[in-house]
Design a protein around this nucleic acid. Sequence first.
DNA 1: TATGAATGAGAGTTCATTCAT
DNA 2: GATGAATGAACTCTCATTCAT
Lengths: 207, 207, 207, 207
Amino acid sequence: MTSKPKFTPERRRQILEAAVEVIAAKGLCDTRISDIAERAGTSAALVIYYFHTKDRLLTEALTFAEDRFYLQTFHELTNIASASDRLTRLIEISCPPEVRSDEIVGEWILWVELWSRALRDEDVARKREALDRRWRSTIAEIVRDGQQAGEFADIDAADFSLRLAALIDGLALQVVLGDRDVTATRARSLVLDVARRELQFGEALTP
Amino acid sequence: MTSKPKFTPERRRQILEAAVEVIAAKGLCDTRISDIAERAGTSAALVIYYFHTKDRLLTEALTFAEDRFYLQTFHELTNIASASDRLTRLIEISCPPEVRSDEIVGEWILWVELWSRALRDEDVARKREALDRRWRSTIAEIVRDGQQAGEFADIDAADFSLRLAALIDGLALQVVLGDRDVTATRARSLVLDVARRELQFGEALTP
Amino acid sequence: MTSKPKFTPERRRQILEAAVEVIAAKGLCDTRISDIAERAGTSAALVIYYFHTKDRLLTEALTFAEDRFYLQTFHELTNIASASDRLTRLIEISCPPEVRSDEIVGEWILWVELWSRALRDEDVARKREALDRRWRSTIAEIVRDGQQAGEFADIDAADFSLRLAALIDGLALQVVLGDRDVTATRARSLVLDVARRELQFGEALTP
Amino acid sequence: MTSKPKFTPERRRQILEAAVEVIAAKGLCDTRISDIAERAGTSAALVIYYFHTKDRLLTEALTFAEDRFYLQTFHELTNIASASDRLTRLIEISCPPEVRSDEIVGEWILWVELWSRALRDEDVARKREALDRRWRSTIAEIVRDGQQAGEFADIDAADFSLRLAALIDGLALQVVLGDRDVTATRARSLVLDVARRELQFGEALTP
DNA sequence: TATGAATGAGAGTTCATTCAT
DNA sequence: GATGAATGAACTCTCATTCAT
């Protein structure tokens, strides 16, 4: 409990968090080890000491952030009883909000960087695949829960979850990129509409 | 027809093409001016001579490629009479094919790089926005054509085109990233299903 | 007599003049051939065509400017009858004026650049030596004229001219460098005082 | 006392000294960071590590050298009791010697480079001004000391010191530039003559 | 564990100069 | 004579990484 925490796992997390912030702020390829070190309050040498190479650090940072985001979301959803409410909340959480929250936007920025990296790094590609599978499974599970509870229509859960996840990716991307045709509100309501129409829950029409 | 092509616009295009290839192959931030020069068969100095700065070259290269792809697609579509055939072909063209075609995959790789760049460069962001708007307009126009011809159901063309474009982005991305859950065939058929179901054309159910 | 004069000697002079202006404005080592070409209204290739190498151009430009300045001064002095008036005028001309005249200041800037270059280039060193000798001879000649006319005291003309030239160099330098202790007026009056005191002409005291 | 000297202030001085030597040898604008690094026995990267930019290094090097020279001179003068001896020694030190001493000539070369730089860099201009003021003050102080001791005539110390400094500048310059009309001996004796005549000390006439 | 010092390996960019036209 | 195109050779500066302490 000194002012400068010393032992390893704590420091690792501090550095990863710093890395995530820097990547979100400056982009993957403009991120310097010294930027990360500075934000983490240490030296570049220490950063390398913990992660051996810049490459490994960046890869870990990207998945660390997405993993953490998933766990937070997952945890929040567990507390919601009805499947339709759970799905609605999932959509709300995953679409960027109208009021720019750096946290959520940062999350999406990291996805884009992760995609770009996965294109050339098999290791990153596999990690990304796992993250996305888990995400789609979560959706599919909600769907199956709702179907068992009689809340949702009986459609193919796997197909639906893939379609929904892809739609969210595509629309959230536009929002994060600042496309003036795609406001956060519009994106969200389009996704909700699709979900309601296909699963036949709630009021299918937004007035 | 000399062995050393000389005059300006030709050379510019050669360099842009080389840039596009290198970016697709190595990624935006691992692309060196000298790589591009080498592939274009010239010197790095000449590349700078034409584009003044690496930044401008990369930005131009990205939009050049997407613009060219769009024009090719657009041209091909004009020759198709029925709106439903036109939409079907558009979907086929824009989803990556099962057999890896470097051309199409390259196109999608460039989109990812373009997104990543647009996040931090307002200029790039605006150019990307324009490209996407044009793409969605093209879809919307096909929809309206089909509706006038009585081929399609009477849904909101703007909403549909945004949803369809986003779905394509989201699914094509998974394919290009090599997600083993999302084959090119599956992606394509999911998109077609959505289109058929919403616009009520062709056989709505894939057996 | 076309708008763009074509034949050689004219063009040479134009380029030299452009070179002098650029050197005075940007300093010798920040002078680019293309700057000179631009100011002369031609291409860098033509500049090289006339002078073969940047080095030769710069050397010629420096001596060209100083030579021209000398000739102008010399010409003006010939029209003055009395030796003391001639010397007074010479001092006035060679000290930078209180009101910053780019022409005169430029002249002094070029001297500094010429000195710097002469330190490492024997050829430039010899040319500079010749220029300075001619200048000191001019002073010495005025002194001898004045002595013959009974205007001046009978001191060693060679020593005096060397001392006076050196004093002018030293003081003008301070003025051009913007030393706030050495105004143009003060420099000029110090030089005049020395001349009057040593040669015993005019009123030795400046009121 | 290790083979590789490590700590900062020592290294800084080493680099500055190397810079001074290279500048004197090759001239300011032909001085490369790598030349300095090589002479200092390190890498160009380290040079930048210490000075951040070439510009700052050069500026510091120029003033470093002149400052050091001043301090040495000043220190030597303090040990001389009589003002006239002190002034005589000051003149001897500041005029380049007949036998080419690289140290002294180097000093003067640096002055020329400093002047050239001061013409375009306000920061350098101010530093140069400060150096020259200090130098002239030193002369003026000697004069006032001599006047109080009754060694010197009662003339204006400020004017005299400015005139003497300018004369030294002008004559030393000729010597350093290798003007065959101005030997070191002649320059020195001219300056001494002026000093003796104006302040009326020693034997005013050199036989 | 932690870091400042040190560096090699480039990167982008500049620029004098050449050359075909 | 005149020039735009082209390039090789540098140069400054950056940065991941190493190492002694």
